[in-house]
Amino acid sequence: MKVSLSILLFFLCLSSSVRTQAQYYDTPKEHDCLKCHSQQTYSFHNELMGTDDKKLMNPYYIIDTLGLREGVHKQFDCTDCHSYDYTTYPHNANLKLEPLATCLDCHGGDESFASYQFDKIQEEFQKSVHYQAYGDNFTCAKCHSQHTYTATARNSNSILEIVDYSNKMCLSCHNDMRRYGLVSGQENPALIDVHSWLPNQELHFKHVRCIECHTAVEDDLMVSHNIRAKEEAVRRCAECHSENSLLKASLYKYQNLQERAEDGSIIGVLSNENYVIGSHQIPILRTISLLIFFAALGGIIIHGIFRIIYKK
C-alpha cells in the first residue's frame, strides 16, 4: 500500500511538472516575469519617496508572448538563460552588466544539435561584415530572437513564408534607424533606393531572401551566415537567371508569348527581341567549338602557304 501510494505520488508530481513546463507562458499575467514584461507599463513601490510609482516599460523589454509560446525555446523558463537574481523585484541594476549565456554555450559541440552545425555557423559568421564591424557584440540574437525564434526554413513548406521570415530578420535592423545605428554608428541606407537598379524590385523582395545575393554560399551549410560587404553582393541577373536553365527557359517562353500577345503579326513575331544563349552557356561546347574553329583556320593557313610556295 505504501509502495503504491508513493508511485502514485511520483506520477502526480511528474505529470504536474510536465504540465507546468508546457504551460510556462500560457497565462502571461500570472507569470512572474511576463506579468510586467508583456505590458506597456509596470508599477513598483518607491521606498525613497514612499509612493507607488507607475512607469512605461522600455519597448525593447516587452516580450512577444504569442511568439514566445511558438518559439524553439518555449520549454525554458526566463531564468534558464537570464540570471536567477532577476527573480527579486525591483531588479538589481548591476544585473544588466552580467554577461548573458550565448547560444554556443548550449548549442556548441553538442551531438544532439549536430545537424544544425552551430560551430560551422559560428565559423562562417566570423567572416561576415557583421562580425567585422561589431565583433562579439554582434550576438546571434541580433538576428535570431531567442524568445520567439522558429526554424522556419527547415519546417515550413511555403517559400513565401520562409522568405518573409528570413528577410524580416535583416529588416529588423536594416529598416530600423535605431537598431541599425547601434551596430554601424551611422544612418541606415534607404533599401528601396539602393536596390533601385533591381528590376521588379517588389517581386524580388517578396520571393527572394536578402541572403541569396548577400552571402557567400557554402554548399555544406543550409543557410550561409557569411554576409558579405555590399560591394560583393550578386548584381548580375545572369547568375540566377541563366545558370538555372529551367528558370531561364520558363522566362524565355513567358516573355516570347507576352510579346506575341501584344503584336501577333508576322512582322511582330519577327521583331521579337527575346533570345536565349545556345551552346556558349555550356563551357565544354564552347571549348570544342573554339578547337574546331582554330583547327579549320590552321588547316586553311597551312594549305594556303603550300599553295603560295607551289604556285597552285
Binding site: S245, K248, A249, Y252, V276, G278, S279, I300
Partner: peptide, 23 residues
C-alpha cells in the same frame, strides 16, 4: 529543358554551317 536543347542544337548547327562556309 527543351528550350536549352533547342537553343544548343540551333547554335551548334549554326556553328557547323559557319565552319562549312569558311572551308
Amino acid at each position: 529543358s527543351g528550350v536549352l536543347i533547342t537553343a544548343v542544337t540551333h547554335s551548334a548547327m549554326g556553328f557547323f554551317i559557319s565552319i562549312f562556309l569558311i572551308i
